[in-house]
Design a protein around this nucleic acid. Structure first.
Lengths: 69, 69
DNA sequence: TTAATTTTACCGCTATAACAGTAAAATAAT
DNA sequence: ATTATTTTACTGTTATAGCGGTAAAATTAA
C-alpha cells in the first residue's frame, strides 16, 4: 500500500529502539532533517534515504500485486 | 526487503500491462527519465515518483518488521 | 532483410531535496 | 516548579533529481 502512516511506523520503531531523531539520522547516514521529514510523511524524500532509515530499524519492504501473488 | 529487483518487478508489470516506458511515465505523471531510472534500480528517485508508478501498475507496498508481525 | 518501435544514454536547465546551523516550541526528567 | 532533552520549524547553501529534447543502440514488426 501507499502507506500514509509510514512516518508513524518509523517513529514508533525508533522510539522502541530508544533512539532520537538525531541518533537515527547518524546511524542511517542521513541528515536529521531527512528523518524529521520521513516521520512527517513527506513523500519527496529520496528512496535511498528512506531505505537507509528502514535498514537501521530492521523494517523490510514487500511489493505485492495480483501478478506476484 | 530492500528489494534490489524492484526495477525488474516494475518492468515486468509494465510489460504485462502492454505499456511503454513513455506511456507509463505519462500515466504516472512523471518524466520518462524517471521510469527509466526506476527500472534501472536507481535508488535516488523520489518516493512520490515511485509511488505514482506503483499506483498505475497496481503494486502495493508493505512494511514488515518483528514489531509489526 | 528493412522499417518501426522502444530503450538506453546523453545534454542543459530548473526545481528542490538534503544538509548543518540555529532557535523556539514541545516533551520528559529532576 | 526548573532543567534537560527532544522535536519542530525555520534559514542559506550545495548537490542533484527531474524534466524534455535529442540521438544512437537495441528490440520488435513487416
Amino acid at each position: 500500500m501507499n502507506n500514509l502512516n509510514l512516518g508513524a511506523l518509523i517513529k514508533d520503531h525508533r522510539k522502541k529502539a530508544g533512539l532520537t531523531q538525531l541518533e537515527l539520522a547518524n546511524l542511517a547516514g542521513v541528515g536529521k532533517t531527512t528523518v524529521f521529514d520521513i516521520e512527517k510523511n513527506k513523500e519527496t524524500v529520496r528512496l535511498n534515504n528512506l531505505f537507509a532509515v528502514l535498514r537501521v530499524l530492521n523494517i523490510k519492504i514487500e511489493f505485492k500485486s495480483p501478478l506476484t501473488k
